[in-house]
Design a protein around this nucleic acid. Structure first.
Lengths: 212, 212
DNA sequence: CACCAATTGAGAAATGTATCACAATTGAAG
DNA sequence: CTTCAATTGTGATACATTTCTCAATTGGTG
């Protein structure tokens, strides 16, 4: 039973977006000591229907056993491979303000496939200071160092006004994926992926539903 | 020309989710000194089609002028009203670790309709310490204080293992909207809205598209 | 005042996504 | 060895969202 690995059908991006949550939930089930789960158990935990989970997984192969369900550790291996986090990606963090500090101190990324390699800031008062295990480096040296280290993934935690300029530097340095914490839209060339984190937008999305 | 304010059609949630980005972009246009914009200018800035922006706005009323476009400050007022951020919502923040500290020090929420009123933590070493302008309070007093202050919105910045317990407390205290920074799914009763922030999931969504 | 370029709002059509429903399979129980 | 309950994977269907298209409107120009 061959795994349809190089997907014939194009994978909807919305499906890709759910896979990290499947992986997260599976790891939590594994941590609880379970070995087997089912699409309905996953669905219950995630607030999705079992059919959706089965259909999503079916884009990538046949990972379950009829009558039995899914082997948790096997499915974890498959999802890590599919998401390409069966390795560690070196990441550059730009911005050493409060948010950058929280990111640098947060150790939850490693488990998910990411390791911060460099931290940059433009503030001369911060450059050469240490932050967690890192020494903050001058943003003037970003392009050179990031390119030399072949780093392809970045986290952007600078003020909105600086974000586009820094993004341009990252792209120039060869970065292909940017997690943008600044509340502004970035313009990047094709082939560069951006994901935006905007807590304020999430908040406003919720207040819409609250009665006055 | 009456504004269809109490929407006859139900509004798709995905449309609601885009409105905060429209508002954010409009404020940025206003800050640049512009007074008028068009659906295509907004679309260019946001990476969306002009048709989608017009259709989204049309769920709520007729805000533009044919041939001319949209009056920026008028549309800002309308969107703030629609999203119910034409006021300030008091927010409770739970968790005074690195992330909680970054949130408490971040002043960008106020402009978007939110003001932190209380900060809670369960760590006795942190309780009664100050954080930004706040005094960290014991989580044991959360239900009482949040209920008394009639706070309806929360930000949850505690470790994943504690998140569900804290969420239960928030719900008990009458909170109806929770921004969950913990990488775990929360179970809440109907009528309580949750938005999840999971940077690790965004990262994994991007690596899917990177070539090995 | 007639014409024109720009632009909206919205019905219709096209596309995308989620759910349904069920044959096929599995392992367990009798 | 047969039966059964559980569960997958997927084609068909239903539903949701986006895009297309264009009549209507606007303010500016000659």
């Amino acid at each position: 039973m061959p795994h349809k690995q190089p997907p014939g059908r194009p994978i909807p991006d919305i499906v890709v977006g759910r896979l990290p949550f499947y992986l997260r939930t599976l790891r939590s089930l594994a941590a609880e000591g379970l070995e087997i789960t089912s699409s309905s158990e996953l669905g219950d935990r995630l607030g999705l229907t079992s059919a959706q989970i089965r259909k999503d997984l079916s884009y990538f192969g046949e990972f379950g056993k009829q009558g039995l369900g899914y082997n948790i550790s096997f499915l974890i291996v498959q999802l890590r491979r599919i998401l390409k986090v069966d390795r560690i990606w070196e990441v550059v963090l730009v911005g050493a303000g409060d948010l950058g500090r929280a990111i640098a101190n947060y150790h939850g990324f490693h488990d998910r496939g990411f390791e911060i390699r460099f931290v940059f800031d433009s503030d001369p008062a911060k450059v050469r200071q240490s932050l967690s295990q890192y020494t903050i480096q001058d943003i003037a040296s970003l392009v050179e160092k990031v390119r030399a280290a072949k780093i392809r993934v970045a986290m952007l935690a600078v003020p909105a006004a600086a974000a586009q300029n820094v993004s341009d530097l990252l792209v120039e340095a060869g970065v292909q994926a940017i997690l943008n914490y600044a509340p502004t839209s970035l313009v990047v060339p094709k082939g560069v992926y951006v994901q935006n984190i905007d807590p304020g937008a999430h908040m406003q999305r919720m207040t819409f539903y609250l009665e006055a």
